[in-house]
Design a protein around this nucleic acid. Structure first.
Lengths: 229, 229
DNA sequence: ACCTGAACACCGTTCAAGT
DNA sequence: ACCTGAACACCGTTCAAGT
């Protein structure tokens, strides 16, 4: 969790890690192999999940020896960082008339990106924030700056909006169970039906309009901001 | 991610898995070892994080052979499930006068539990929901039933509240960096200072009043519900 | 009913070489 | 500058036995 983050003994080329955004036009050649690795890693993650990403398997898919990877990449950790970041690329900046639509669009796009690559959400908690995540945060901040939220509340407002897709996607992924698990869950609910009375009554776990609930959640927040104004 | 969830070839005693809530008073003896394992697993996770939890290390801490664990537990996966669930035990039901305080209390307690065991939040996405998580969902549903939210919105309201601590805790954990990372992040921001103008200006990443922002987020949502009523 | 050690099929990564 | 295979120190888990 904490880990050894001090990568002083990094190979020189590794300045071009997730960390830096500048200077990406120069020396495009060596970066190419790096990109191939990351793209293939994403494919592998899509196909086999986090547990399926193995340096050995990754190398095989690339038709190279395992250790060749380590010239382009310092770690398996770094492969995960890069794969996560690749998948979270923000949308090209669309200009909407009103800031409300802009916020909704940004958050829905983010959620959609994560749902397209369900492993990404499980990597979110333990990875440092990559540049693409930072860019999204920046875009969100800008959109919200037009909303006229009180100065004292604006940061809290940004974080609340930010947390919504994160939480919603995790919830969605962890509550989307195999049919077996679903059946087991139903049985569990039925067994202790007094314990989970409210859940059963509201059909909370069966009413799976995740998209609608997500959208409504954004609206609740935005309405809440308006009221706090 | 998908994985082999069909545990037909489970040892008999393993009916007493996370799944079931009934029949926990009978035959307390064998369960004791199970509990010891889980408690020790939590200690180990607290000390060394997810990567530090090893069946071998766990056995050593318990003073037993590695394979002894497998009589009480079918998997490392199951150890993680049980550890997660143990840590998410809901608070004893306190009766508040108003539902608003009740909701706030529940969500703050949940967040605090996760922050006490930061590894728990990284396990949330990939584990099925244990009984304690379900209980929390039930308690939240009940508290909110007194809020008078429109029928069509009540489930979306519950999910929005539910997602808030999940997202907030993940954000808090992944933005709480080592000092090294913090410095690196600052440098990154400074370098592309036009790219991250809004973030810098609002001092979003430096203003680390996480508790306050979390609480305000709840209020935004609750105010949003009131408006949608 | 409960515990065990040996063994298997994997991991990520170091190192010393190759071209 | 880029790639490689052998080797090391780990993993989780199966199996066949022990008590």
């Amino acid at each position: 969790m904490a880990g050894k983050r001090t990568d002083a003994r990094r190979k020189q080329h590794a300045q071009a890690s997730v960390d830096d955004a500048a200077g990406q036009e120069a020396r495009a050649e060596p970066t190419l192999a790096r990109e191939r690795i990351v793209v293939t890693a994403v494919e592998l993650l899509d196909a086999r999940g986090v547990a399926g990403l193995t340096m050995r398997e990754l190398a095989e898919r690339l038709g190279s020896g395992v250790m060749s990877l380590y010239w382009h990449v310092s770690n398996k950790e770094e492969v995960l960082d890069l794969a996560l970041d690749l998948v979270l690329e923000p949308p090209h900046c669309v200009e909407f008339g009103n800031w409300r639509e802009e916020v909704v669009h940004q958050l829905e796009d983010w959620r959609a990106s994560m749902l397209r690559h369900p492993w990404s959400v499980s990597l979110l908690p333990r990875r440092a924030l990559g540049p693409n995540l930072l860019s999204r945060l920046e875009l969100l901040s800008r959109a919200l700056s037009k909303a006229g939220v009180a100065d004292a509340d604006v940061n809290a407002a940004i974080w609340s909006l930010w947390n919504h897709p994160v939480g919603a996607t995790i919830t969605r992924v962890s509550f989307t169970l195999s049919d077996d698990d679903m059946a087991a869950g139903q049985r569990r609910l039925a067994r202790g039906s007094d314990r989970y009375k409210a859940i059963e009554q509201s059909r909370l776990l069966l009413d799976n309009d995740w998209d609608g609930a997500f959208r409504k959640g954004i609206d609740f927040l935005l309405d809440g901001f308006a009221r706090a104004k």
